[in-house]
Write a protein that binds this DNA or RNA. Structure first.
Lengths: 237, 237
DNA sequence: CGAAACACTATACACTGTCAGGAGTTATGG
DNA sequence: CCATAACTCCTGACAGTGTATAGTGTTTCG
């Protein structure tokens, strides 16, 4: 089994070989990841450099290698660690409630760690915490008897929508006044060539809540589609 | 008007000031972008460095600055240039056909330029070609009288789903045999803890077509949801 | 007790984006 | 007509990045 996989699943049975031969380890993988994650939360993924993380422990960059391997491995470990699933709300009366409960919980995680949206979720190597989310979603499908053929596309849509919503929310919260002016200048540049776009609701003063409302609306849309019997009925009038 | 915006809209009326004072320009913005895009297509976004692009013209990195500005501007220009919209298929009998025509066309663009999925589409500054796609999608909504309240969430879902599908397709096509072995080793590591995940269709030999089929199924799902009357009806049994 | 395995440091290498200055070229204003 | 402002492009530099390599010292195994 790969070293990286062992590290990913270290809290679910996989054991890093403990009786080691060299000097004592002065660092701890979980602490390293906590520091790296707090760095990313505060200043973005590009602030997470091997030297910056190691400096928090008064160590050099190379000291991290026995713990996390390469930088890409570090990022994958951060991704899974930050994806820890909370206890989901128990109220699941119907499919729409079950899906929106799952979606908003995942949305909260992405809001707390906006850099997660920059990481691909189509990774071949996924960790235990990300698997938990997938299993929970499939549990909702199972509970409300979603037809199997619709499950894979629904999974894709839900993950993609949650991530896209969190991404726009994060982008909004990073907007400065100067950015807003620049945006309006750009919008004013070609006003009449795109009538339909212009008719869309623009950035309103309450865009704090707009992403979450949009997410719920999208999930409800999908829930009705799933209840209508799946894609093979879509051609019916 | 910002220099960057002028460059973005240079083919839609915005004019870069032509009677300039210094020596003749030896490069051309469109050629620079073509080279940068071909670089990204072949070797990924991280292969696009200012020095690498400039070297194709036997120039130094700094020679690009009068044409594209900063690296971030270069990426934004590439993004829009690569997003040029082809003529969409004219057959749009019903909403599902209209949406899947739009979605597969955008999907093809993303397949041709996989690095587009790494770029945020929630950018405040969007270019003309990306606007074209948005306008076309809203045109489909308008044509089939999609209720206005459902349009914004539907836009999010469609874009997000197309991008996610293209991302997984790109990840699949990059998979080597060694990656596949590693993936199976990881899947075998914890077999029984995730029964529902295990029951999902695994990576089949025909994963070339799986993403596209998944995209169509997802779009049909959404179309039925939209035709069912929107999210306010989702609570009905 | 020797030797193998390990943690960590120091140094170095090949990159990255872009700032600062300078040389040379072109159009403009007086 | 000519000084000057504006422009293009180059050189060199700087502060970063991830990580390969070599070396030092420590711990445990045979």
């Amino acid at each position: 089994m790969d070293d990286h996989l062992k590290r990913l699943w270290r809290h679910r049975g996989a054991t890093l070989p403990t009786p080691r031969r060299g000097p004592r380890q002065q660092l701890d993988l979980d602490e390293i990841l906590a520091v790296a994650i707090s760095l990313a939360d505060a200043s973005g993924l590009e602030a997470v450099s091997t030297r910056a993380v190691a400096a928090r422990f008064d160590k050099t960059a190379m000291a991290l290698y026995p713990y996390v391997g390469t930088k890409e491995n570090l990022l994958a470990l951060m991704q899974d660690q930050a994806s820890a699933m909370p206890a989901l709300s128990v109220a699941q009366e119907d499919l729409a409630e079950g899906l929106s409960g799952w979606a908003t919980a995942l949305y909260e995680v992405y809001l707390a760690h906006p850099w997660l949206t920059e990481r691909s979720w189509a990774q071949a190597t996924q960790g235990p915490n990300e698997q938990d989310w997938m299993e929970a979603l499939l549990g909702v499908f199972e509970r409300f008897a979603v037809p199997p053929a619709s499950r894979t596309p629904a999974v894709t849509m839900l993950y993609a929508t949650v991530r896209a919503t969190a991404q726009t929310a994060a982008a909004y919260s990073r907007l400065t006044d100067a950015d807003l002016e620049a945006w309006q200048a750009g919008a004013a540049a070609v006003p009449d060539a795109y009538p339909l776009t212009a008719a869309l609701p623009a950035i309103t003063p309450n865009w704090q809540d707009a992403p979450r409302a949009g997410l719920l609306a999208a999930v409800n849309l999908l829930a009705t589609g799933l209840q209508a019997g799946g894609p093979h009925l879509s051609r019916r009038d």
